[in-house]
């Protein structure tokens, strides 16, 4: 059972306080998008062995969504940050690079 740090209220709590919400940094495709783009948005999710970015909600706590950068193999959490961003902040990327040089996730590295 993981421990996660909520960047919104500062609580470091156990996984049962949080709900996982799937892949982070998705770009929404609405009306007017191609079938392929829409399919990718809805269904073509990353399933990496290693560095991953996930949405979590502090459901039993402050109710806020945030993003966790973590490793799906070692379960190491590289960092968490508020959801109001389109890409991982530089300090999170640096923290990952320090541990996993050469990592890539979608367009990010």
């Amino acid at each position: 059972m993981l421990i996660l740090h909520c960047p919104c209220c500062g609580v470091t709590g156990e996984e049962t306080e949080f709900h996982q919400g799937g892949e982070a940094h998705l770009k929404r495709e609405g009306p007017g998008s191609s079938d392929e783009a829409f399919h990718t948005y809805l269904f073509a999710k990353e399933n990496p062995r290693g560095v991953h970015f996930e949405r979590w909600r502090h459901a039993y706590g402050c109710g806020k969504w945030f993003i966790a950068a973590r490793d799906t193999v070692t379960l190491e959490v590289y960092g968490t940050y508020p959801a109001q961003t389109h890409e991982p902040p530089p300090e999170i990327r640096e923290a990952i690079t320090a541990k996993r040089p050469g990592w890539r996730w979608r367009a990010f590295a």
């Binding site: 209220c9 306080e17 706590g61």
Partner: peptide
């Protein structure tokens, strides 16, 4: 103040 889980409820 702590918001959390008490048994099975928020």
């Amino acid at each position: 103040v702590r918001r959390t889980r008490l048994g099975q409820i928020p």
